[in-house]
Structures are given as C-alpha cells and as structure tokens.
C-alpha cells in the first residue's frame, strides 16, 4: 500500500486534516503545525523502536483521533508521543508497548503545553519515570474516561508528575501499574517537585487499583512534595488512611476477557459518583453513554 504519512503531513497546511487509511505505518514524525490526524479504520503507527512515534511542537492545537501508537522507543522523553509545546488533543487512541527506559513517559511525555486526553488507553508501556505518562516542567495533562494499566517504571508506574507539572484526571482507571528498581516509588502515581517547584495532581471519580500492596500506590515525595487531591475515588482498602470522600475496597473488576478492568454491576464504583460529575453527553472509554455516575473509565452494567 502506498501512503506516505510524513509527506501527507508536510503537504497539509495549518488547520488542515490528514486522513490516514487503515494499515500499519512505520513512523517517527515531528508535527510542527496545528493540524488534525484522523484514522480511518484500524490504523497503527509503529515506531519500530526507532525513536518517538509522534513529536508535537507547535503553538496551535494538534488533534489526533483513533490511532494505535505502538513500538516507540526513545532514550529521552515519550516513547509514543512527546508534547513539546502547544496543545494536543488525543482522542480514542491506544498507546501500547512504547518505551522510554532512560528518562520517562513510556507512552506519553509532556515537556511543555497542554494535552487533553479523552477515551484513550495506555497499556503495557515502560518508562524510567512514568511508565505510562510523564508530566514535566509546567506542562498540563487533562485526562478523562481513560485507562492506564499494566505500565511499568522506576518512579511512577502509571503516572509521574514533576517540577510544576499539573495533572487532572476525571473518570479514569489506573490499574496494575508497577514500579521496579532499587528505590521504586509510586505504583500508580508519583509526584515530586524541587525546592522551587511543586506539581499538582487531582484525581476525581477514578478507580485506582494494584494487584499487590505497595511499595506505595500513590507517592508524594516528602522531600519536595506536590499537591495530591483525591476526591470521589475508589482506592484499595489499605489506603483508607487517605480518608476524605473516597471509597476503599476491591475495585470490582470483571477480571477476565477482553476488558478485565470493566466493572461488575456489584462494584463499589458503580453509581458511586457525584451527579453530573461527567457533564452532559459523557461517554466511557468504550464510547458507551454514561447512564450512571460510575467511577473509573468503564460504565458499569445496568
């Protein structure tokens, strides 16, 4: 099949749309203008372990819809996607098996700008800091209805937020992310600042679950702490000291099949949210209407 994605991007003017046909495209691309990339059918962007798959560095908005982004590998930031400025909208994408083993953000790294993530999956990525996602400097992550599962890192298995980074998660599921190495911290989320910077992380209506306890599910480094806010989340029982308006207990995942992190009808997360938390027309990670206010990225069966 003859389709040159790099050439298509180069030829598309700012504000234009690149329609990418179904298929697997080996690529490592720099997007330096505000354009939209739309996947038609099953479109896989494969980094083939030769650098970051997509690097975004612009002053406008870049929209990426419907892709699988796999096989990226870099020695610095963001195996799958690196945002280096501007605004990135990532919708209904799956980022899987990307690596950033020397620094971080296996699937996604934000060094500058704002990323708005909706209905995406971050699965099986590895990064030294942030197996799934790294938010660095003063970048902002706004993520909803997304799954962060089975990622691995040394510091922040699922999500690592540092310096003055800001992360706001709504209706997301963080499950089975792991930390490894000599001083592993933050299985699901790790945040730390510096003596002059402090990150902020807010999790609302999220389900946070780990297969086993510790070494610390949510790590806020005491030496240079950030602000970690958890509201209306379902957390493991052994986190009950966190208190607040959160729930504590088993996640109540289906645990098998294609969607092991989907909720059972009996899950404590089912219907446990605050009315209107998701706003009108909300949909879960599978694109289903959110009929109730369930915690996490999957709507519970009714």
């Amino acid at each position: 099949m003859s389709f040159d994605l790099a050439a298509a991007i180069a030829e598309t003017p700012a504000g234009g749309v690149v329609n990418v046909p179904a298929g697997t495209w080996a690529t490592s691309l720099l997007i330096d203008k505000p354009i939209s990339l739309l996947a038609h059918g099953v479109v896989v962007l494969d980094g083939q372990r030769r650098g970051t798959v997509l690097r975004v560095r612009t002053t406008g908005v870049v929209k990426v819809l419907g892709f699988s982004i796999v096989g990226g590998r870099t020695n610095t930031l963001g195996g799958g996607v690196l945002l280096d400025g501007g605004e990135l909208e990532l919708t209904q994408c799956t980022l899987r098996f990307n690596e950033a083993p020397v620094y971080g953000g296996g699937a996604l790294a934000l060094r500058a700008g704002t990323a708005r993530i909706k209905s995406c999956r971050f699965e099986g990525n590895t990064g030294r800091q942030g197996g799934g996602i790294l938010v660095d400097h003063d970048a902002t992550l706004v993520m909803r209805d997304s799954l962060v599962a089975q990622n691995a890192g040394f510091d922040g298995g699922g999500l690592r937020v540092k310096e003055s980074g800001n992360a706001e998660l709504l209706g997301c599921t963080l499950a089975d992310n792991v930390v490894l190495g000599e001083t592993p911290t933050g299985g699901a989320v790790s945040l730390s600042g510096s003596t002059t910077a402090s990150p902020r992380v807010t999790l609302s209506h999220c389900v946070v679950s780990e297969r086993k306890q510790g070494p610390e599910l949510l790590h806020n480094f005491a030496g240079a702490p950030g602000t970690l806010t958890l509201t209306h989340c379902l957390l493991p029982e052994w986190c009950h000291a966190l208190g607040g308006d959160n729930l504590f207990g088993p996640a109540g995942f289906v645990g098998q099949g294609n969607e092991p992190y989907a909720l059972t009808a009996q899950s404590a997360a089912a219907g446990a949210g605050v009315p209107f938390a998701y706003g009108p027309g909300a949909r879960d990670v599978l694109g289903r209407a959110r009929e109730g206010v369930d915690l996490g990225c999957f709507a519970a069966p009714r």
């Binding site: 620094y103 971080g104 800091q129 040394f154 600042g193 510096s194 480094f221 240079a224």
Partner: peptide, 9 residues
C-alpha cells in the same frame, strides 16, 4: 530533591 531524583534519567 536528591540524588535519587536526578539519578533516574
């Protein structure tokens, strides 16, 4: 924040 923080890349 410490050598641990700069020693992870």
């Amino acid at each position: 924040g410490g050598y641990d923080k700069v020693g992870n890349g």
